[in-house]
């Protein structure tokens, strides 16, 4: 495999998560560009001047964002983590509480990172998904054990507060990053 082919493979790998059609078009264009550049100045000169594949991929990610399927994965993963934050597996007590606390910590970290990486819209959807799964699961557990409430009014208030905070955590870091890093000097 030639150095330019290796480079194109690196760019392809770095662009994972972008829409497939966009990825293919970008690679096709880059391949055509490199072919012209090699014909003009030789492969070694071209290879010495290449930017890191990650830097190239980052610019396209800023321009287009992740593809729909990749965005959905962010949301689904947040929902799964949201489910794990509910200590519904009472047979495992006291392990269930510990697992739910760890899951909550992981969810908070994940939402912040997802929002920073994939943008505020994806972060918001991920936060809403986690919030709804938490509320839905606990409400379901409450209905299933109607005689013995799963928590009291204060417990519910705290639970709802934390759940809504997840929505904020999914949105705000990504939005802040978008505002602060907006260096696009388009006409």
């Amino acid at each position: 495999m030639s150095p330019t082919e290796t480079y194109l493979k690196g760019v392809q790998s770095a662009m994972r998560g972008l829409d497939r059609r966009i990825r293919e078009d970008v690679l096709r264009e880059l391949k055509a560009h490199l072919a012209d550049a090699v014909a003009d100045g030789g492969e070694s000169a071209v290879v010495a001047n290449l930017e890191a594949p990650q830097a190239i991929a980052r610019r396209y990610k800023v321009l287009y964002g992740y593809g729909r399927s990749f965005q959905s994965m962010f949301v689904i993963f947040a929902a799964v983590l949201g489910l794990l934050t509910i200590p519904i597996f009472s047979l495992l007590e006291p392990l269930a509480s510990l697992v739910s606390l760890l899951a909550l910590g992981a969810l908070v970290t994940y939402l912040i990172l997802a929002a920073m990486d994939a943008g505020s819209s994806v972060g918001l959807f991920a936060g809403v998904a986690a919030c709804l799964v938490r509320i839905g699961t606990l409400a379901g557990a409450q209905i299933a054990t109607e005689i013995a409430p799963v928590t009291d009014a204060r417990g519910w208030a705290l639970f709802l507060g934390v759940s809504f905070l997840l929505v904020v955590l999914g949105y705000v870091p990504g939005r802040a990053r978008e505002k602060w890093t907006r260096r696009d000097l388009s006409m």
């Binding site: 880059l30 490199l34 930017e51 830097a55 610019r59 800023v62 321009l63 696009d184 388009s186 006409m187």
Partner: peptide, 18 residues
């Protein structure tokens, strides 16, 4: 310009319909 600057810039112009 490097290719990593030119092509995203052209695509921005295309998104704007220019």
């Amino acid at each position: 310009l490097k290719e990593g600057t030119l092509y995203p810039a052209l695509r921005r112009l295309e998104e704007r319909g220019f």
